[in-house]
Nucleic acid binder design. Structure first.
Lengths: 151, 151
DNA sequence: TGTGAAACGTGCTAAGG
DNA sequence: CCTTAGCACGTTTCACA
């Protein structure tokens, strides 16, 4: 799918605030309801627009600790990889997980109520899948957090 | 603000899909429209529910490279810190930024079209603020990504 | 505090320029 | 491809149990 300048404007609006009315968005991008609606539908169908969600405040919900976990493994066979993948996907405290190029094999972002809860998570994870080396980086302050891509 | 089991159910629904109708959500949490609506409003007012957004697909929009950037600095005075903060906040390719405890001072998550675009970003950043040491981890695969806290 | 119904605004569809 | 117009649906409010 080919997207143009208007699509990008719409995307910017929706990434900023998906709660606004079609009329508002149409006005903001300099168009009107129907064409905007059609474009949104096409962007949805193309999978460019994914889920629509609310962002909850971690601190106010008691998730006051955020760790970035750097993982090195010695086992690189596909069976191990699959088990690791399942383990990570199954744990709700893992907000994000990437397989990396180079020295470090995986990075996780983990949100938990406190350091103790992180340890519980950590013990549970390494008991389920063998990992060679783990480093946890503790976040002191979230300087910036956005879901909006710079389209 | 004190939140109960029903609030948590509502939060789960909204974190999953904020596009559903009140009726649907009410049915899902075993209540009815008005009380659910009141609760959502209160959660909004309390700031527990933040912005409502759409999640766009990075790959389909040409953001095919994702880097985690580990930064060490030698300068820890508040002036430097403020300049770094501004620099990071101003750059839209920085999706996330945390100040860390320990050895490494900052971690950034950066989304760009390709490695070349990352280099442009990197050069531009270090020309604006002095940093002692930078390590970039390149993501090969996003194993998991969620905005939903396990409430 | 939850229920039901009424009033309002939007999303969505369809027809015409 | 955009504009205008209309219907159906969802949200929001309010009176009452």
């Amino acid at each position: 799918m080919q997207i143009d300048a208007t699509d990008r404007k719409i995307l910017r609006e929706l990434q900023q605030d998906a709660g606004r009315s079609l009329d508002d968005i149409a006005r903001a991008v300099g168009s009107s309801k129907t064409p905007v609606w059609t474009r949104i539908r096409k962007l949805r169908e193309a999978g460019i627009i994914g889920p629509q969600v609310v962002i909850a405040d971690p601190d106010k919900l008691g998730f006051e600790a955020c760790f970035f976990v750097l993982i090195r493994t010695s086992e690189h066979d596909s069976d191990w990889q699959q088990r690791f993948l399942n383990a990570v996907r199954a744990r709700p405290e893992v907000m994000e997980a990437h397989r990396l190029a180079g020295d470090i094999d995986y990075i996780l972002k983990v949100r938990v109520p406190n350091a103790r809860a992180y340890d519980v998570f950590y013990q549970s994870l390494i008991s389920e899948v063998k990992v060679h080396n783990v480093t946890a980086l503790l976040s002191m302050e979230e300087i910036k957090a956005t879901t909006a891509l710079p389209v």
